[in-house]
Design a protein around this nucleic acid. Structure first.
Lengths: 153, 153
DNA sequence: TAAACATCGTGCGTATGCGCACCAACTTCT
DNA sequence: AGAAGTTGGTGCGCATACGCACGATGTTTA
């Protein structure tokens, strides 16, 4: 079992652990871990089209739509027609949404701190760099990676 | 925006990238990325109880059940009553399941290779180590989040 | 200008992911 | 042994995650 073969499972286990932990933490505040991600993305770039938002999260446009519907019901997000493109709709935080996000951010601090504290100095930087590289590599060329299919010869 | 604050999103982005890529790759073989994980787990420890299986993936028992039902329908997995505990059921790969897993493993090689190739020598090892540490830390003490952290020895 | 094409949002179907409640069966305690 | 508590599997509900097809609108091309 080489490191190469362990990597996918290690990544999966780490992400699911984070997700579960976040879910538990945010539940009392009435939002899910993924809704937190959406709110965070809107915080960093307000009035995005749904597609832009989906691209940045990253998530699927149809998933984002479902999430926006729920968040709109909670009054945390507002959707308006796009000023110049009448196909598009922009999403933005409401005042309540901004307030809620600040709460969530604070509530999540313990988790971020705990993740970070499990490392030696510098290792956190390394981890972020490697994860980013990996994601880029995986997203880049799933097209042009030759259709050599499963024959290793 | 410190590294600590980027880490959760970087982890999420990397995992989702891997998941999407795997989903696409395995679709033509008739299974999902998570079903692949289940089959892999059964390959490494046959005749597990559903709970054992869930613990190792890691996944929720009720999710695992749903997956097993689907995999059973495909004839890749068999569930038998546990020999000594009549509450429990064991899950095991069928012959077809073992064959399928070998196919899937080969099909996934390109992805594992691509992930691995985005790193310098030694970085893969580091990544696996850091991810494992982090997952452990996140799973460990969501109960006793007191100030007496890491006594991981 | 009209046709062809691309893009945005929506709705639907399937598969997780997980909590929760429930029953059945095992274990422990009295 | 009997009561009480724990554990295993199931069923249900909600929220992603994503592909796909559809209609409406923008953009490009003939």
């Amino acid at each position: 079992m080489s490191v190469k073969d362990q990597l996918p499972m290690a990544l999966r286990a780490a992400y699911l652990a984070l997700h579960r932990r976040s879910e538990t933490r945010f539940a009392s505040l009435g939002v899910t871990a993924d809704q937190f991600v959406l709110l965070a993305t809107l915080t960093r770039g307000d009035a995005l089209t749904q597609r832009e938002l989906a691209g940045r999260m990253p998530s699927d446009p149809s998933t984002v739509r479902a999430m926006l519907v729920l968040l709109e019901k909670q009054g945390l997000v507002r959707r308006d027609p796009h000023p110049s493109d009448s196909r598009a709709r922009t999403a933005a935080l409401t005042a309540a949404g901004k307030r809620k996000f600040r709460q969530l951010w604070d509530a999540g601090e313990a988790i971020r701190q705990q993740m970070f504290d499990s490392f030696e100095p510098g290792e956190g930087e390394t981890l972020v760099r490697l994860l980013t590289q990996m994601a880029e590599s995986l997203n880049a060329d799933h097209q042009l990676v030759g259709e050599s299919t499963n024959s290793t010869n």
